[in-house]
Design a protein around this nucleic acid. Structure first.
Lengths: 142, 142
DNA sequence: ATAATAAAGGACAAATTAGTCCGGAATTAT
DNA sequence: ATAATTCCGGACTAATTTGTCCTTTATTAT
């Protein structure tokens, strides 16, 4: 479904959310080891989240990553930051001619499925996801 | 969404369906050029559709490909043959712990979205898709 | 039989995605 | 100031997906 980088990014964001309540920063090392994601790759992914303004980073001792605004930032934001709009645009069959005026046989169903996907991702803020995970003692690890 | 090979496969199957009504066979060359897909790649993809029992091929002059049973074969069959079950199984966030007993925050929504995707694909037979395309004079080309 | 046609299949090449390595820059503690 | 820590960024490698090429095999027409 999502690219690996993308699922890593979502899990990373959620882990950081769950760890940095008191304004603390979480380091890549910890994120990577706890989520069992290669460290250098985790670093890359968190860098793109920084550029997308989803997390903030500080260097040096006690540095690390912190969510920017877990209440307004959603899972969709992370998906868009890493995988872009792939899942939400274009004909699923790759038909250039396909549009709402001239829909392919699966057009309507895909519009519905994709918009419901998008809506659900947009409705799930990182803080809500974090809370739900914590409520059931969910391990975010791989 | 789907892999390129998969969308090529769907379009290929639909093109063959639209061309081989009178028991005729359609060649890769024609499929590839009409759909603007690389010929050798088209060949590979049609081969996997043959192995999956979705199309039948015959070699030699006037040979080519023909759908096996466009009424019972569905778009889902093509997707499964080429991309496998990727889109329909496993936690979208890559959480191994996630299951219906211990669902991640997005579990239920994903189950719904994916099953509706699967249902729509399973409900769309290749013949129905072909008819819908023909009714609106749809070009299947890229 | 022979030649022409067309799919099958294996080996290869290109592009994309996944993942690694390492030096540099910023921050903090001593 | 210096050393330790930690993120940044570029160049690299590995794996997968996409796509090519060429030889073989089956079928048909002459």
């Amino acid at each position: 479904m999502f690219s690996k980088a993308c699922t890593y990014g979502i899990r990373g964001a959620l882990y950081i959310a769950s760890r940095s309540k008191a304004g603390e920063f979480t380091g890549v090392k910890e994120v990577a080891s706890k989520l069992d994601i290669p460290q250098a790759f985790t670093s890359k992914i968190l860098q793109t989240l920084v550029k997308s303004d989803i997390v903030t980073s500080v260097r040096g001792p006690n540095g690390g990553f912190k969510l920017n605004d877990e209440v307004s930032k959603t899972v969709l934001d992370v998906v868009l930051a890493i995988d872009g709009t792939d899942y939400f645009v274009g004909c699923a069959l790759g038909l250039t001619e396909c549009s709402s005026e001239n829909p392919c046989p699966l057009h309507t169903e895909f519009v519905n499925i994709r918009s419901s996907l998008r809506n659900r991702l947009a409705a799930m803020s990182l803080s809500e996801a974090r809370e739900l995970l914590e409520e059931q003692h969910f391990r975010i690890s791989g």
